[in-house]
Design a protein around this nucleic acid. Structure first.
Lengths: 221, 221
DNA sequence: AATCCGCCTAACCTTTCGGTCAATGGCAAC
DNA sequence: GTTGCCATTGACCGAAAGGTTAGGCGGATT
């Protein structure tokens, strides 16, 4: 969970003027691209927002597209989630934690998730590399799930007999569905804990501490 | 499932020249908007594609945005699915059929689904009405699911005790997840039947054909 | 025959786009 | 002090955007 933060600007390092202005430009472009998209954002706007001349942007970045991919890469930085396998937990807890961090990540990065999704949906040639990178992250996540489920089945913890690949795919689909529900309906319409509890029940049967009194998994209105 | 088709142009009806050209323009604009998006499509392109002068477009539609919403409405036509409740089926079959038609609809209209999704994600002010209409369809679908699940629970067919609203929400999320998986990974990566079967099992327990009597939904290890 | 009107176009207008260029001020090296 | 490089700028460019205008053509009305 460590790598969830955006890289902080090292204010102590000796930064050149150039680096400073470059950073300012990237920051402005990031905001504008994310809120309006690529084609709807003009270089003049970026220049104004960054309080810099338009020519300077073209000094730092040869073309508008080069600026765009620089922004993409910067936006992607926080996406490399550190899924430290906490060996202490059993598989069920690990899987639920994985699902939880997926959802909380989406919650915390909603605007850029939205941006990436829109970008990938609609501007294919501009963001092939983005597509690749996201796909990589995605399949890594899926592989983790598959392995966890397989292990749980071997241990006999998981009662569901579905093939691990199918189960993982279904689980991921459910998570993605929550993602888009969240993006459209907003925070209040989604109940992450309830959803996580549901997939848990789906895979493993009754809730973990069902004999005692605990509030998890209660149906919401 | 009758209303899934796009309205055919009635070639037999007496159409005026005006209607013809208007139609040609809409057709061209539809294609271009869907493939490239609003801002990336120019009126000159539309004119060229429709083999018509640019001025004629502005004679039919006051502005570019007016053309756009006309296209939106035309694209939305096939979205009004006719969910004729086939009273002969039991609730499980009805729910599975609902899920199936959701997925096959997405498969058949992939390009416009993609377009709408991108549009809603990224250009909020341009497509408020689109947002509303889609939301309406969506909540209609959800309401149907809720009712079906509630009835199944009353009848005792559905073993799952979750509140119908929560179950329907989760089911819809899973479907939406499949939707985006389909949009990104393509046809071969998604297994609609498998997914439908899974939600069926999730709600009702064992597959319908396996045994006439299914006892507890979540078998213990 | 003259007129009117619906449909359509070529040419034009204004604005803004991505991008270039010559010219600057600051600053370190010689 | 001059040279030379880095960072930066305002002015400028051709192209293309969305949109307008004046007018042509053809068929119905008078």
């Amino acid at each position: 969970m460590g790598a969830l933060q955006v890289k902080q600007l090292g204010t102590s390092e000796p930064r050149t003027q150039s680096q400073d202005s470059r950073d300012e430009i990237l920051k402005a472009a990031m905001q504008l691209f994310a809120n309006r998209g690529f084609h709807e954002t003009s270089m003049s706007e970026v220049a104004r927002e960054a309080r810099v001349s338009k020519a300077l942007i073209f000094w730092h970045f040869k073309t508008k597209e080069e600026l765009f991919v620089a922004v993409l890469n910067r936006l992607l930085e926080p996406y490399f989630i550190d899924f430290a396998e906490e060996a202490a937990m059993d598989e069920r807890a690990q899987i639920e934690k994985l699902a939880e961090s997926y959802l909380s990540f989406v919650r915390d990065n909603a605007s850029s998730v939205r941006f990436f999704l829109a970008q990938m949906l609609h501007d294919e040639r501009l963001s092939e590399s983005l597509n690749d990178q996201v796909l990589k992250l995605y399949s890594g996540y899926r592989a983790m799930l598959v392995e966890l489920i397989a292990r749980a089945q071997q241990k006999g913890i998981c009662t569901r007999r579905t093939a691990p690949e199918s189960a993982a795919a279904f689980l991921l689909s459910a998570l993605n569905g929550l993602l888009i529900e969240y993006l459209f309906m907003g925070e209040n319409a989604v109940d992450p804990e309830g959803a996580v509890a549901m997939v848990g029940e789906w895979l493993f049967g009754a809730p973990p501490g069902s004999s005692s009194t605990e509030g998890g998994g209660a149906p919401a209105a």
